[in-house]
Each structure stands twice: as C-alpha cells, then as structure tokens.
Amino acid sequence: MLHVHPDHDSCLEVAVLKGKASELQDFSAEVTTERCVRYDQLVQVQVQVQEEASE
C-alpha cells in the first residue's frame, strides 16, 4: 500500500491487489462508497501465470 499526502487536506492511497476480476471490481465499488472518498479508479492488468518446471 502506498500512502501519500499531496497537500494538507488530501490523501492518496494506491493498493496493488491480486485476485479474481469480479472480486477486485466489488472491492473498488466498496471503496467508492466510503466516507470522504472523492475519486476511485480501478486499473486491471491481466497476467498469464506460468507453471514452474519440476527438476
């Protein structure tokens, strides 16, 4: 979690999360409804998981 105060009255928080897209969208929707949240943006990056070869 990254937590920064760009000015005296504002706070910027950035979270890097891993999970199912639907669960991340639900989390984002919950954050938006929190008191004092002025802006919320969910950015999703799809990754391809590769299995490691056993030796």
Rank of each mutant, 00 (worst) to 15 (best):
E13M: 12
V16K: 15
R35L: 09
E55P: 14
L12G: 06
V4G: 01
Q48A: 09
S22P: 00
S10L: 12
H3I: 10
T32M: 10
K18G: 08
V14Y: 04
Y39W: 02
P6I: 04
K20L: 10
E13P: 00
E51Y: 14
L17Q: 04
E34P: 01
D26G: 09
A53I: 14
K18N: 10
L2H: 02
H5L: 04
Q48F: 07
T33F: 07
Q41N: 05
G19D: 03
Q44S: 07
K18V: 14
S54A: 15
H5P: 06
L12R: 08
E52W: 14
D40P: 00
D9H: 12
G19I: 06
A29D: 10
Q41T: 05
D7H: 07
T33Q: 14
G19N: 01
V45M: 10
A29C: 07
V49N: 08
L42F: 01
T33N: 12
Y39H: 13
L2T: 04
V45T: 11
V16T: 10
V4I: 12
V45G: 08
A53Y: 08
Q44C: 09
T33E: 13
E30Q: 15
Q48D: 11
L2D: 02
L12D: 07
Y39T: 06
H3Q: 01
K18F: 10
D7P: 07
V16S: 08
D26S: 13
L2W: 03
E34Q: 15
K20W: 00
M1T: 05
D9N: 13
H5Q: 13
S54L: 15
D40W: 00
D9I: 13
D40C: 05
L42K: 01
Y39Q: 11
E30C: 10
Q46W: 00
E23S: 07
V43F: 01
H3T: 06
K20I: 04
